[in-house]
Design a protein around this nucleic acid. Sequence first.
DNA 1: TCGTCCGAGACCGGA
DNA 2: TCTCGGACGA
Length: 803
Amino acid sequence: MLPQDSLSGAGVPPSGQAAPLLHGLNPEQLAAVTLPAGHALILAGAGSGKTRVLTTRIAWLLSTGQAAPGGILAVTFTNKAAKEMLTRLSAMLPINVRGMWIGTFHGLCNRLLRAHHKLAGLPQTFQILDTQDQLSAVKRLCKQFNVDEERFKPKELAYFFAGCKEEGLRPRDVPVRDEDTRNKVELYQLYEEQCQREGVVDFGELMLRSYELLRDNDPVRVHYQRRFAHMLVDEFQDTNKLQYAWLKLLAGDMVDGRLQTRGSVIAVGDDDQSIYAFRGARVGNMQDFVREFGVERQIKLEQNYRSYSNILDSANALIAHNSKRLGKNLRTSQGPGEPVRVYEANSDLAEAQWMVDEIRQLVQGGTATRSEIAVLYRSNAQSRVIESALFNVAVPYRVYGGLRFFERAEIKHALAYLRLLENPHDDTSFMRVVNFPARGIGARSLESLQDVARQIGCSLHDAVSSISGKAGANLGAFVAMIDVLREQTQGQNLRAIIGQMLQASGLIEHYRNEKEGADRLENLDELISAAESFVTQEGFGKDAVALPIDETGAPLTQSPASQGLDPNAPLLNQPLVDADTGETLSPLAAFLTHAALEAGDNQAQAGQDAVQLMTVHASKGLEFDCVFIGGLEEELFPHQNAMSDQGGLEEERRLMYVAITRARARLYLSHAQTRLLHGQTRYNLRSRFFDELPEECLKWLTPRQQGFASYAPDMRAVGAYQSGARGQSGFKSEAFTSPPVPPRKEAPAHGLRVGLAVFHTKFGEGKVLALEGAGDDARAQVNFPRHGTKWLALAVAKLTIVE
DNA sequence: TCGTCCGAGACCGGA
DNA sequence: TCTCGGACGA
């Protein structure tokens, strides 16, 4: 039933239209969907129907007439989530979703900055730097100012700049405590000047600049505050300080130290799934939100519709080890289901082989289709072994992550040319392609070009005319090529522009002559198709109607375009608009924006029934019937970089929690005793997370090793770990079922015995303390005076007996 | 100036 | 194992 008091006045269609929307919601979900106006926090556990609640809420607001499409702003973190929301919405309601602002933080900021680029102090065609571009911009800066790159590593500088921006700090705002910081802040200032001069913004700038735009321009801010009466924020636990401040600005103004809001904000989040602290996410925003917005309604969604209880209990038990939690426990009405299966492999190869065997059984036995099986891992590097194991037995698979479409070198090159067409002063793009394909412009020429540009204070493009000699001729030819191309492609469609660019730049020619160029040529072809489908989706062409603007120069709330009720209209948002002129951004400029904000899929063959391989981070928000989580070893998962502090470890645990809760019916966990990482074999302890799972939910496919500590690379580390959280490990003999593991017998074919002195190429001389295993599996424990005690796989380690 | 070779260092995660 | 940057010879 609809709460009567929340239906606001005139224009409300009969509630009969909304009723089907609400069908099948549980009481908490219903309460969340039909919340009356006002701010609210929804704590939504994994698999509790969060996205459904969000989209139904929007649909409910619209269908009851409480909101117009233009009055809604819904913000997410990933393009995937935004698309999902739009897809579901359009399935629920026969309305055009174009007038709504649904997108990622960065996407919406981009939209704001395009609309008000003058006020924001940006050229209309400003380009967006992705992480790669940003790094090369920083490197260029370092070269220019002769920065000691040993002392200030470009990567660290980029990270520092991004961190400042996430905190909302401009160079003048950064507290300087030491000389080191002072230098960094100076470089930060120079970096900003460089970006501004070149008309480019990085991801952090996108966010910070639009924050400042809203903060410093009252009419604009007020306009959007009025417009967005309903704001919904997904994955609120992942917001950083700046994003939260941005939301506050849109919601209302501070009056006498108190936030006076106009519309209502609904934040949906799960503190247990906060896995982005490394890029500035602040779980504390949830508490701040409750306090500063005066949130009175908090709803917990704890009913899980996804997993059986063995899986859910495991997740609950694991996450209970974290100290800082808002407190929430998932429950399910489904039965216990299958136990969580645990497997210990001798090596990463064996682990992968076991996974593949299990996967084939699942598929052949009809338990699951391939696309409903996911293999999750902590870091991308782990996918290799699994991929090759799958490949060997011809099981189709799909890897997420790694290089994505718009990040491939050839695509970046092509995009750089396109960017130069839009903005000749984009020095990052200039540098990228000025000598690619090679056209006789070497480091020397570029150095002098950069010198000249700095002296005059202009872009590289403009500095070219001041260079004389042979270098000047070559550079001149390059610039002329770009300028001619720009003129020639004026007014042409995107397909034609890209086609001509590929020819004129010599990219096609270059890759045609390259040995391994076929793939790259194919990708360049794919770029044209991508542009083509972008153009149709975004609705450029006949139905592209500019949004009208009001007296403040901002687009009007309700545009005729957004009301053009075309049920078959594409799902994406309306074209980017310049608020001053009402012009839509050119297809090329919009496409470049799209390419920067959405790195795209990494592989085609989407439709195929394939096993899904991805990192745990990438799996967030997804679910599968069967989930394998591999590499559950100390230093890998939890990752070694995260173990230095408590916060890091808790984040790793949340990551594990996310991984576990992806599974609906079957969950497999595994770890390997030895793993080839960074080109060398490592011996890792079984992950501590195993000890935090309830024994009764687990089924050990291999005997649970008591002597786990024997794999420690360093005895001191073992001591520290043993004295820590590790309690009594339950050794359940009845859990030993299939498949049987060959017993390890002493079979000293290697000629070693305890007490023998041996020599290792890396660790030097040492003494054998213990031996175990046989054949390929044989290991020796050796004490090296300088490197401590290690277990070495004799098949791998080169040990010679010292006479 | 260009291409290739080689050694060092990295690989945790993403808009 | 792979990528990057520097060195070196053509």
